[in-house]
Simulated assay, not measured.
Amino acid sequence: MAYISAASTISHQPTFRNAGFSNVIQPLQQGSVLISPDYKSFIEAGLLRRMSKILRMSVACSKDCIAQAGIDQPDAIIVGTGLGCLLDTEKFLNNSMTIEGLLPPTSFIQSTHNTMAGQISLSIGNHGYNMTHTQNTLSFEHAVQDGMLLLNEGEEHILVGAADEHIEILDEISEKLKINFETGLTSAASFFILSNAKSEATLAKIRDVRTIGLVTDVSAQIKAFLAENKIGPDGLDLVLFSGKPQDSAEISYSENKNSPIDFTGFSGVYPTSSAFALHFAIDKMGNNKTLKHILICNALNKSNLGLTLIESVEA
């Protein structure tokens, strides 16, 4: 169990510092662009110029979360990312092919997957546990599990988030592989403060998180997950899914429940889009007090399954 004390998302939707966004956003259209806030409010101008898009998003969301939660420092910083800092990786590779002699180090230094967690730590002066998880489409779920383990060990507040960025070459690769996405590939960052106790700032609770690799029977895994948490399919008020909808939808509703929602229709497609789904679910609960239990079913990659059960503060 973990209490969510703050949530912040920068995406292709008006999500940043916009409580109630889940009730007003519309499905993304092809060609949508990232909606960036004024980063100067969060990052010094000198640092801002040297930061790529994914670093700017991560630092801004992190600082926004810390301010929302009203804490001085988190006890740990944990980030999940599927593809890491792609723009800086591309810059470094291009430099290595076009520049003779010594290469400028910045793009190489900022191309590693753990750059986001490190940059957040430097930006807020944090010296605690700092970890990056990169397990394809389950990267965010693993980051959340890590955070919950730390809470069980006695830590009070953990900053947990996820970020991935879209660059043009991904479109070329997906076209060559004949992978088509209705909403297109997108960029986003979502960060949360997980706490070990309920407070006035608590938005919702994460009751449990499960990750399954090489999954063969999605429905069976969902049923087992719900049974372990002593909740029946008809006890779910909403299911958010990515991937194949029928596997999660068939067993997750009685006739009087809300229709399942494919959250990638709102977030677009990127490896850690389940982090967007978590913020979406929290926001939904804040605006609709009848929603007590929400299941996020992340099957964006057919061989991976991530399950997150969210419970309202009142439940």
Rank of each mutant, 00 (worst) to 15 (best):
V24C: 13
I25V: 14
Q26D: 09
P27Q: 00
L28W: 08
Q29L: 11
Q30K: 15
G31R: 02
G31H: 05
S32F: 03
V33A: 08
L34K: 08
L34R: 08
I35M: 09
P37N: 08
D38L: 04
Y39D: 11
K40M: 07
S41C: 03
F42Y: 15
F42L: 01
I43W: 14
I43S: 14
E44R: 13
G46F: 00
L47P: 00
L47K: 12
L48I: 13
L48K: 05
L48G: 09
R50I: 06
M51W: 01
M51Q: 02
S52K: 09
K53H: 04
K53L: 07
L55H: 06
L55K: 02
L55E: 14
L55D: 06
R56S: 14
M57W: 02
M57I: 03
M57T: 03
S58C: 01
V59L: 10
V59S: 10
C61T: 15
S62K: 08
K63Q: 13
K63N: 02
K63W: 05
C65Y: 04
I66P: 04
I66D: 01
I66E: 01
A67S: 15
Q68H: 06
A69M: 05
A69D: 03
G70E: 12
G70I: 06
I71A: 08
I71Y: 07
Q73F: 08
D75F: 05
A76M: 06
A76W: 06
A76Y: 03
I78A: 07
V79W: 07
T81H: 09
G84S: 12
C85G: 03
C85L: 05
L86T: 00
D88C: 11
D88W: 02
T89N: 07
T89V: 01
T89D: 06
K91Y: 12
L93E: 12
L93C: 13
L93Y: 12
N94E: 15
N94W: 10
N94K: 13
N95C: 09
S96Q: 11
S96Y: 14
M97P: 00
T98K: 11
T98N: 08
T98E: 12
